[in-house]
Simulated assay, not measured.
Amino acid sequence: MRAGHERGAFGLRPEEGNTGQDTDVVKVPLRQLLAHARPQAPALVVASLLSCVAAAVVLVQPLVVKKVFTDLSDSRPVTATVLVIVGLFLAEALLGSVHTAYCSTAWTPGRSTR
């Protein structure tokens, strides 16, 4: 390539004043960016779903803990509710582990998601 015509990220010419190194910011049209993300779409969908389910589990936990305190104050048995809390904590840990493991393998450079 001729001097001054280096290519930056995604093979685009960097804006004037950029050196063409990987650390430079290059404006890329959204359409072109989505074209590069398309092969990763299944992994992105799975990771998003796992994140949403994990968030829902985390949001339910305080409600169940509140029920334990309510049941204790009303002298009702709390065994079943405590088991639900334990199940929620285990589900959160499992979802977090699966999410981390999936994300660390889904975006490994050179790995195809197909």
Rank of each mutant, 00 (worst) to 15 (best):
Q32N: 07
A41H: 08
E15D: 13
T19K: 14
V46T: 14
A43E: 05
L33K: 11
V46C: 06
K67L: 15
L33H: 09
R13A: 13
V78P: 05
V57E: 10
A56Q: 08
A37T: 01
L72G: 01
A80C: 01
N18I: 00
L30W: 07
D74V: 01
V60F: 09
L34Q: 14
R13H: 14
A56N: 07
V68I: 15
R38F: 04
D24K: 07
S73Q: 14
L63H: 14
Q40P: 00
R38N: 02
S51K: 13
T19G: 11
A56D: 06
P29G: 01
P14I: 02
A35R: 14
Q61L: 15
D24R: 12
R31A: 15
K67G: 00
T23M: 04
A55V: 00
K66R: 11
S75A: 12
R13F: 05
R38T: 08
A43L: 03
A35N: 08
A56L: 14
Q61E: 12
P62K: 08
V84N: 07
R31C: 01
L63A: 10
T79P: 00
A37E: 10
L63W: 05
A37N: 03
D22V: 10
K66H: 14
P39R: 10
V58P: 00
L33T: 01
A35F: 03
N18A: 15
E16H: 09
E16N: 06
V68C: 08
T70E: 15
A43F: 01
T81F: 05
G20M: 02
V82H: 01
A80Y: 04
R76G: 00
E16Y: 10
L49T: 07
V45A: 14
P42C: 07
L63Q: 11
A43M: 02
D74R: 13
G17S: 03
